[in-house]
Design a protein around this nucleic acid. Structure first.
Lengths: 122, 122
DNA sequence: GTAATATATGAATAACTGTTCATACAATCA
DNA sequence: TGATTGTATGAACAGTTATTCATATATTAC
């Protein structure tokens, strides 16, 4: 369906490689998926939240323990946990006055480690 | 090393489960790693950038093609490509007047797909 | 040289984010 | 009941971000 023999020389108007653009467009994720995906990554885009995920990677912890662990205020941690909760990266269970947080599933652990590999492997 | 028989009842001061907190603290990634990791995820935390990654997932594209593909201005795309470049999520090669962008490596593809799985699997 | 094309970038602006502070809610204990 | 402890949340503030617009740089064609 390509009308030009020359593979790629012009981007302007109808002279750009339309086949390649159409191919990319067909694979392109839709706007809603892009937004959801971006939100998931956004939940992991803050050092404090990444450290929370890291702290929860082995065992659940309650809010106060997380605050002590990270050396931050209970309020700051609680606000960030809300973000992580809303993005379904963590789940929680209540036990008396405490609320114990844990990673939502193994998927989160994988995502975290995949990112870590990229960072450590430079 | 645990001094309390009761597993978890108090979070206040020295009465919280210190063993669990220490354990979490030992596993906790350091501040620099947390910042770098957060930056990597942040590069993927915008719908436009996610769509760019998606568009590049099969073949390289030049800036103008990306703009056409996403229906956005050249300037907006160029600004976002800069972010992706700085985070080493994309690489580029110059060919004449054109600059062709591609995913930096398979790692990026994996990271993208891992996130996509999480989103689609609800 | 001039014109056209492809890309990059600084400034400006509106929208968003993370923390602190104060306070509210909830559960336990005296 | 009132006091204490654990957690959540609204407001405010400083800092950041994504887009647009105008413009600069760079390469090619004439």
């Amino acid at each position: 369906m390509k009308t030009k023999a020359e593979p790629r020389d012009k981007c302007e108007g109808s002279d750009m490689d339309e086949a390649r653009v159409r191919g990319a467009q067909e694979r392109l994720i839709d706007g809603l998926t892009a937004t959801r995906l971006a939100q998931t990554f956004k939940a992991l885009s803050d050092p404090t939240r990444v450290r929370i995920i890291s702290a929860l990677s082995h065992d659940e912890l309650c809010v106060h323990e997380l605050a002590a662990c990270l050396g931050m205020s209970q309020s700051a941690i609680s606000h960030q946990l809300r973000t992580l909760r809303e993005m379904r990266l963590v789940r929680f269970r209540k036990e008396g006055r405490h609320v114990y947080y844990a990673l939502d599933d193994e998927h989160i652990h994988d995502l975290f480690n995949q990112g870590l590999e990229h960072v450590e492997h430079d």
